[in-house]
Write a protein that binds this DNA or RNA. Structure first.
Lengths: 227, 227
DNA sequence: CTTAATTGCGTAAATTTTACGCAATGTTTT
DNA sequence: AAAACATTGCGTAAAATTTACGCAATTAAG
């Protein structure tokens, strides 16, 4: 017990809700806890913050250590401070969500079990992680109106249908294919590679990519993504 | 130094950006610091979290103690964790913004100086509070698209022009008076009191009030406020 | 008494959203 | 092999919404 203070200090952790898209549904990556408390239950990767790192650095480190992932997009969305969150001591957690391509390899250094779960099939989680998940989804849905975060969940090249399925999965709605198509092309965020891909046993489909330059221009002029 | 831990713990504080509306401009409430560090500089009310209170409870307590205010609307928007935020020790702050009516009496228990500053006339602040302020404004602007938080900044009864000035101040844009009027009435969030008020040396104007029931109904059906 | 502000409506034009139509291509079924 | 079905790439007309103003009434100021 070498670290002493004049006043009580809570412990501070970060937790990271990792979203991935499997082509139809939104998934979250969970880690099976190997130690008490909540041993055997599923939880988000996360852990105690170190004195020489910021919260975001901590979240990225835990993501790497526990899930073996490097996330391109990461966003802090809420800090949870309920008194009895953790039975061991007062723990305040700064929560992030990350968007990754589901195809990426998953697996932690310490061989902890990591697994993707579709959003509508998530088991009961450890701590207050159920509440954290609900809020993460709400924030993701909110954020998608201001930034084209959907693109972070897709591979560099994707078809229009994939993109539509993604937005439908995140927002929980259905779009008319042709209207979605028109709207997306008008927005000017898409680059056409000119290439096509043969869909699984179906016909040819154009491949698009997210055009970050156009996006930055749009952002300068001020805009809002509507879906 | 009676509080000892096996691992180092950062200190945790809350800070509260308090917005008020003076009829033309958006203002923030600042407290002049009476002690080092940054003695004499202006800062947001805030302080260390206690072990028996949540972050929001802490923020409300500090608001009461340092500014003498009870805020109806309060929202956590970001947690700041840069390493050198505070010269004394590692301090992580959970930041909130509050919306209050500027008319409310201002003054802390400990006779600390509290003062309203228009957003475009804010002095250099203590700690990293400049950055916190910028982010608070950004969040307020974002949030106003999803919730009618503007009403929290006005008295229970207000004229259409007051409401328009408020939205213009928050979003930094100009609206056509007649279009704003039409849009607001169509939204159905307003209750008409039937009363009128004589504007300062001008003519009569209707008084409206925010109708929370209509708002809750709207929210159920899913909606978005557009301005 | 004229000018300038400010308030309460209303309305036509411009723009955006929504609802479908249709041909082409390839898979699956009969 | 033919028919039925699914999927993709366009378009386009109707519906709804947003935007740009018009206009009269009232009051203060010059």
């Amino acid at each position: 017990m070498n670290y002493c203070y004049q006043y009580p200090h809570p412990a501070v952790t970060t937790d990271c809700v990792i979203f991935g898209f499997d082509g139809t549904r939104l998934n979250v990556l969970l880690i099976e806890r190997g130690i008490e408390p909540y041993k055997g239950r599923w939880a988000f990767p996360g852990g105690f913050i170190r004195m020489e790192e910021t919260a975001e650095e901590c979240a990225r480190r835990e993501l790497r250590e526990e899930a073996g992932l490097e996330a391109a997009y990461m966003r802090q969305f809420h800090t949870f401070s309920t008194l009895d969150r953790d039975p061991r001591e007062r723990v305040i957690t700064i929560a992030y969500y990350a968007l990754v391509q589901l195809s990426e390899v998953v697996g932690g250094d310490d061989a902890a079990r990591a697994q993707w779960f579709p959003l509508d099939d998530v088991p009961r989680l450890a701590f207050d992680h159920d509440a954290i998940l609900r809020q993460a989804i709400a924030e993701l849905r909110r954020q998608i109106h201001f930034e084209p975060i959907g693109f972070e969940l897709l591979p560099p090249q994707f078809t229009m249908t994939q993109l539509q399925r993604l937005y439908e999965a995140v927002l929980g709605v259905k779009f008319d294919r042709r209207n979605f198509y028109n709207k997306m092309r008008h927005l000017g965020l898409l680059g056409e590679s000119g290439e096509t891909v043969t869909m699984p046993n179906r016909r040819e489909a154009f491949l698009y990519s997210f055009n970050r330059e156009s996006y930055d221009e749009l952002k300068e002029r001020g805009f809002r993504l509507e879906f």
